[in-house]
Design a protein around this nucleic acid. Structure first.
Lengths: 351, 351
DNA sequence: CGCAAGAATGATAGCGCTGTCATTTCGATT
DNA sequence: AATCGAAATGACAGCGCTATCATTCTTGCG
């Protein structure tokens, strides 16, 4: 038998079986076009390697079918999940939200997906999250802290995946960090208060994570050096920070050290609560009592009086941390294993 | 040749090839124990179906090797990704953070992983996120809103995955919602202000999403009905909400309608900014000007004066939304397609 | 002691995709 | 027209896991 008309090869090249989930697959597209599924895959992953005309038809059919690539299959086949695990202590804290925004800004355009875990400041949950996220076979991991359990450290080491730590610094060359010196920042604020002439400076802290404690060390060292340290002016509790707690802790401080003339709160939430408490008790700020915070949350410039605080480069920590991680993933050399982005003392009305 | 000693069958039953990534696999464990990999898989997924003694040995070896299951492979083989996509407009807004905490509370113990996307209040980004997350083959999807693009709707429909909407209500039986009536809440607050005797009530709003607009409708309808509606007391801008913006918008309002005696801010952030602005201008609250907010953020009980607002059941919306989604995923029947969790007017000092 | 029924374990075949290498096509060049 | 190299496309295998069905081993009971 002769075929007289020109015939386009229409034998289905794909495997031509129905997908188990009913969702369109590469094969569905391939069959529809009478081409092989690998070409469809290439049309999306390496567009330059597929003829323009064919690629356009592929994209068209993919659109018609509502094709969405299956990342699990892709990850499995390519040994690259394009996932980045990010574990933070809390979403309620604007500090971490800003960092996340920075991270996303870098990751998304590069095709990476951020997998977010919230540890609620618990090292136990942190350990569980690290384990849970390793199951996603992430290409890299971003952690907020340097202090985690030995079991977590072992798991991370064995996973052999790049890890970047944020918010703190380290001088070990095999540990990658982007942050600033919490201790130096604590010191800077205390020195500012000393320079303003305050002598009886208190420190109020909650949520005693390593960053908070480092700020506390900065405070203490500075006052000890100035011969003005008095332990009764330190109020430190493990409870989660909140505005309401700031007020309560100020109340407690004023009971145990009524002659205090300045308070350095370990974060702006507490400090704002402190300011409200002062308003409630008609304590004039800063003439009767100076108030300082930490982080420069967006509200802190608007309070009455406006709040003296330490602005921290959170968004940049996120972007630079993400960039460092991507460099590590792609085996580029990283110029410094620890990047210090510094901080900025914001002198405002409250001191 | 005779083997005289008792010999435990030690022929490796696994496939005995090295994993491509270097990470331990089920096969590695199987080979080490001289059993088949399917048994190892079962030891984790259906522990009851593997003899206790053997299971213990499996777990031990898994631990030694630092085995972490590969979710991509698991998802591919079982056609269940155990992922839930959650798309919210912003992480800076405590409202959504509370919802997320509620969702996580339900999902994590059930083994589901939440994949979080932030749309920054952009329907374009929202569409891109839906597409991006469909690539994870999620078992279900949680969305904050009912209003999204047609293309997004089509994509969701074609994906055929259960979807639950939060924060709003719908009377369509095929749309699943957990939330409350934003409009009724706006009405309730406005009625409260009327009951307090205020006559010249303003409404200040930003970030004009569907929820904000619904609250505005509640406000407007109530005042129109009372014969007290005056369009010059409505200040509505599309900018993102912030405390600072609250102050600026109050300033604008007082220019265009200086005789206003009460302001209903569409959220607590703006309202707190409004309170600060009053403090700055020495406007007595509530005697000269009453101030009300919306959402009852944690700070709102601590402000001076404390802020009248509408408490919204955010955490519960998260938990119930997640539960509804899981029910849909597991094909259980859902008693109501729309769950109204109501709201709670918090009468405080500011009105 | 034999047998059925259940418990425990194993063999097999993919899930949907992509890395690798093989093949085909086609224009450019001599 | 013959030759070559690059561009375009395809075949194949396998990533790590699990659903399914098959097999083997126990156990209780007539």
């Amino acid at each position: 038998m002769w075929i007289l008309n020109p015939v386009i090869d229409s034998k289905p090249k794909g495997r031509a079986r129905a997908s188990s989930t009913g969702r369109a697959t590469l094969d569905d597209i391939a069959v529809k076009l009478g081409i092989s599924s690998i070409t469809v895959s290439r049309a999306f992953r390496h567009p330059g390697k597929v003829a323009d005309e064919l690629r356009e038809r592929i994209v068209k059919v993919a659109d018609d079918l509502g094709y969405v690539r299956n990342r699990a299959a892709s990850a499995l086949a390519s040994a690259r999940s394009m996932n980045i695990a990010v574990i933070i202590p809390s979403l309620g804290n604007a500090v971490f939200v800003d960092i996340l925004n920075g991270i996303e800004k870098v990751l998304r355009p590069r095709g990476y997906q951020m997998l977010l875990g919230v540890s609620h400041y618990s090292s136990e949950e942190e350990a569980a999250l690290v384990r849970a996220y390793l199951a996603f076979d992430p290409d890299g991991i971003i952690l907020p802290s340097l202090n985690y359990r030995d079991s977590t450290r072992r798991l991370l080491e064995r996973a052999g995946k790049p890890v970047v730590h944020l918010m703190e610094l380290s001088d070990q060359p095999n540990i990658h960090c982007v942050g600033f010196s919490q201790e130096a920042a604590g010191k800077a604020m205390t020195e500012h208060l000393l320079a303003k002439g305050y002598k009886r400076i208190a420190f109020i802290a909650s949520q005693l994570d390593s960053r908070t404690l480092a700020r506390g060390r900065g405070y203490r060292d500075t006052l000890v050096e100035a011969g003005l340290y008095d332990p009764k002016r330190e109020v430190m509790v493990p409870d989660p920070s909140s505005i309401a707690l700031g007020g309560r802790l100020l109340e407690r401080l004023l009971q145990q050290a009524p002659d205090t003339d300045a308070v350095f709160f370990c974060n702006d939430d507490l400090a704002q609560g402190g300011l409200f408490e002062c308003a409630r008790r008609k304590i004039a700020v800063p003439s009767q009592l100076a108030v300082a915070g930490f982080n420069d949350l967006s509200a802190s410039a608007s309070t009455v009086p406006s709040l003296t605080t330490v602005a921290t480069p959170r968004f940049d920590i996120g972007t630079q941390g993400a960039n460092m991680l991507l460099a590590l993933i792609e085996h580029q050399k990283v110029s410094h294993s620890s990047i210090d982005l510094g901080f900025d003392l914001k002198r405002r009305e409250s001191t």
